[in-house]
Design a protein around this nucleic acid. Structure first.
Lengths: 154, 154
DNA sequence: TTTTTACCCACGAATCTCCATTGAAACCCA
DNA sequence: TGGGTTTCAATGGAGATTCGTGGGTAAAAA
């Protein structure tokens, strides 16, 4: 069953070639929303993790910029555009539903052998599960789930 | 129009002949937008870097100028038009996806051995990565990425 | 001539494509 | 209801292809 929002969570392996399976439900959501086998992945603004979007994101950002700045080209507009478009990468989903994590994103996102995908409605986050437990705690419902998934992986 | 924007970033080498590879994703965006293997590159108005566009940019700029100044043909309009159309160079992409950086642009843009390409939606910027870190800081998501790219190049 | 600009080709590393295996959940049917 | 079968998501590996890069050479310009 799929939906228009990213919801649920999954912990998948990152192999030696930096490939990761995007959870099937997230893939369905992406394709339902955009009809495309592409996604955007970039560093999170505040958290030690990555953020994933579908390809509608850039268009919406451009609309926001145009509405907010109009024909006024100034430094704020440049800074905004650079931050919005410059840091996320556009990644293709292969036939098996995997992406390859660019090493730089893997690095800045703190990802290692396991990637925790967490749905968040319009977008989703990708965490190193260990970092997640560290940052968000193990006593929340999600924390307990992540703990179990982590233990199940040896 | 609002789809197919310049997204992501890359750090490429500038060789002794002033050749630089334009990141493959940017080349694709350019060709999808214009069906041409050409791009425009000029100094940035406000930042110590260069700006790159596809060949549709001049037409859109003309529209903006007409809308903004209307029938008012005065010195302001001339100044604006001169800045918009006078400085950028039209450069061909060779078979390997490279351009040759004109020495003047290289100089004006402060580019040396490495060129940092940053997507910004309708256009992209080309920075000396060291200058970028200096001007924009290393604590933003993009700053952290650039720092790592730079370190990875020794 | 010197200097620049446009084509060639070449190579290694990173990336993409395709096929195989595993394991778990869903399904079917006597 | 239980047992077997099918389906599909996740994962692993090998080969082909692309990308970024360096070098050479010929045409064009200064």
């Amino acid at each position: 069953m799929s939906h228009d929002q990213f919801l649920g969570n999954a912990t998948n392996a990152v192999d030696a070639k930096n490939r990761v399976s995007v959870p099937a439900g997230f893939r369905d959501t992406i394709e339902r929303r955009t009809k495309e086998k592409w996604l955007l992945l970039g560093p999170h603004e505040r958290e030690p993790c990555l953020v994933g979007y579908d390809l509608h994101r850039p268009g919406r950002l451009q609309a926001i910029i145009d509405r907010r700045f109009g024909d006024d080209f100034g430094p704020e507009r440049d800074d905004y555009a650079r931050a919005a478009f410059g840091s996320p990468e556009k990644l293709p989903l292969d036939d098996n539903g995997r992406i390859i994590l660019p090493p730089i994103l893997k690095d800045v996102g703190g990802i290692e052998g396991l990637a925790l995908f967490v749905g968040a409605g319009d977008f989703f986050e990708v965490w190193n599960p260990v970092v997640f437990l560290d940052a968000k705690g193990e006593t929340t419902p999600l924390g307990r789930i992540v703990r179990k998934q982590l233990d199940a992986r040896k």
